[in-house]
């Protein structure tokens, strides 16, 4: 079943067309890799999907519903979660409070907020899944860089999204941390569809069931990791670009 679909999606900034008539489909349950050379429009494309910026033209459908005009926070409510490329946690709150923030909107049924024990349990569960349970009480800003990236993922998990978009999640991580991360994303993919924007080819090839290549705002190629590896246009774009 198609979870997310775009039609003729475009975004222009002045004279520059960052995303140019993209038709993109994402099936429920897959891990999709999104790659492309620098300036290919990956971040703009993902920002259009998350609703942080508005498209100049085109439509976005999510789970059968047209969400093109829906503001970002409502898309999150529909199940589209996004973790930032630049670590963007609440540094002066505890790790636990960070994850609680991600979970409480989903668990709350009124302005009074969710039951505090259920919230605590859900937040601790998400922290445990990324291996940060022991750090729950520490201020998020004092965590190591690798742990902050994991906290971002835990916040994504706590939102229990249908689609989780991870923007450059392994940037700046050590090889060891990356290995752990690969296992983590596999676990996430059991409950959610994952769109992985990634520079690290090894990670993409290892994780993605299909890969979409963007170049100059258009889809250059799409296929399994093996097909993409063989694709001459992709090789040209990466080697010649």
């Amino acid at each position: 079943m198609t979870l997310l679909e775009t039609e003729g999606l475009s975004r222009r900034f002045g004279g520059l067309t960052a995303v140019d008539g993209v038709a993109f489909q994402l099936a429920e349950g897959e891990i999709r890799g999104l790659i492309g050379p620098n300036g290919a429009g990956k971040t703009t494309f993902v920002s259009l999907l998350s609703g942080r910026i508005r498209p100049s033209a085109g439509r976005i459908r999510f789970a059968g519903e047209d969400v093109t005009m829906l503001p970002a926070h409502k898309r999150v409510g529909r199940g589209i979660a996004y973790t930032f490329q630049i670590t963007s946690i609440f540094a002066r709150m505890t790790a636990l409070d960070n994850v609680k923030l991600a979970a409480q909107r989903r668990l709350a049924h009124s302005w009074a907020g969710p039951d505090s024990e259920r919230l605590e349990a859900a937040a601790m569960d998400a922290l445990a899944r990324v291996g940060l349970a022991a750090r729950a009480g520490g201020l998020a800003g004092t965590l190591s860089y690798g742990h902050q990236r994991l906290l971002e993922v835990a916040m994504g998990l706590a939102m229990a999204p249908r689609l989780l978009m991870l923007d450059e999640p392994t940037q700046g991580l050590s090889d060891e941390e990356i290995a752990g991360f690969v296992g983590l994303v596999r676990g996430i993919a059991r409950d959610a569809t994952v769109l992985l924007i990634e520079h690290n080819m090894r990670v993409v090839m290892e994780l993605a069931s299909r890969i979409t290549v963007l170049e100059r705002g258009r889809i250059l190629a799409e296929g399994t990791p093996a097909e993409i590896r063989r694709d001459e246009a992709v090789q040209r774009a990466y080697l010649g670009g």
Partner: peptide
Amino acid sequence: SSFGRVLAAIRENEERTRMLGYDV
């Protein structure tokens, strides 16, 4: 309250709070 936690989150980082699904 969890309401207060969202307010504090807005104070710390408004954009991130929006992307957690809150109508800031």
